[in-house]
Design a protein around this nucleic acid. Sequence first.
DNA 1: CAACTCATGTAAATGGTTACATGATTCG
DNA 2: CGAATCATGTAACCATTTACATGAGTTG
Lengths: 171, 171
Amino acid sequence: MSLRHAVLGLLTNRPASGYDLMKLFETSLAHVWSATQSQVYGELGKLADGGLVEVSAEGPRGRKEYAITEAGRSELHRWLTEVEPVRTRRSDSLLRVFFLGELTRVEAKTYLLTEAERSAQQLAGLKEAESAIDWGDDPISVHGRLALEYGKRLSAMHEEWARWAAEQLAP
Amino acid sequence: MSLRHAVLGLLTNRPASGYDLMKLFETSLAHVWSATQSQVYGELGKLADGGLVEVSAEGPRGRKEYAITEAGRSELHRWLTEVEPVRTRRSDSLLRVFFLGELTRVEAKTYLLTEAERSAQQLAGLKEAESAIDWGDDPISVHGRLALEYGKRLSAMHEEWARWAAEQLAP
DNA sequence: CAACTCATGTAAATGGTTACATGATTCG
DNA sequence: CGAATCATGTAACCATTTACATGAGTTG
């Protein structure tokens, strides 16, 4: 149930509409938590029903801006401090590695080297984002930078591993 | 739809019952792809309906052993070579990092250092598994070792990052 | 005024989790 | 003979994705 806490967390920074939140999911939270438009609007409705957020302003085109309530903030705190993070690891790209024996050596190597290449590109993208983003000093920017560093380290590790793995395949 | 390919992939090694597959998901594929008992039995039924697997033997207690068919093998090959891996990254523990500003410095540091500790333990667990496992020379063991190395590198990276991040928090 | 962006919502389908339900065989 | 393990399945619920549906305001 992290979607609901992602929404609550984003709203701690400033009030936002469903549309605004969508953009945050696509930018700041890309690589960390994805959400679709229907999920966001649906969750905002449920959070409002539960009193964890409230409509703080209405704008043109039916825009509804939501703000987190005290109850919402307290629920977020409870989640952060008392709920064990869910670690359901699922990696499509790593699952495939188990079954590389079904491929020829060339196909398997191609798979791993493509993985390496993609990681390298991802790392480049993250570095570019890092310098392009106008980092604020709000809490989410500060901690978002920690997460971005994680992404950089992960991409680098992934690339190195994939190149290593490609070399392990019998020649 | 990787569950179905995970099942097909496991069956390339040898025929297996739903019960056998469950154990494989809990051991070899733990950390890579998780599946529940209902999923496995359900998927085996659908795969059999589609002709991608077939019942190859029946045993005591209603045991049904499934084997992959030629159609199944070809579908697995298609998935490995033609289908782009799905990368929907979702990490509960990293999502929390964005919202550490809601916590006190002590709480936030505790969170990160607990993450570091868990990663260290995970690395230890993987190293132990590595030496305890009776590695066969079947293709899944060979490639499973590559995946295990990935897990080791990931745990080590995660631990280092979490310790680094804890130090970045304003003193 | 056309194209684009902003903006919200619902419906159907799929994928995944939890809980329920049952029973046979083996091992100590 | 009791406990553990082997073995299969269904039902209800929750989370996620994809597709549909609509329209207001802004910008060139």
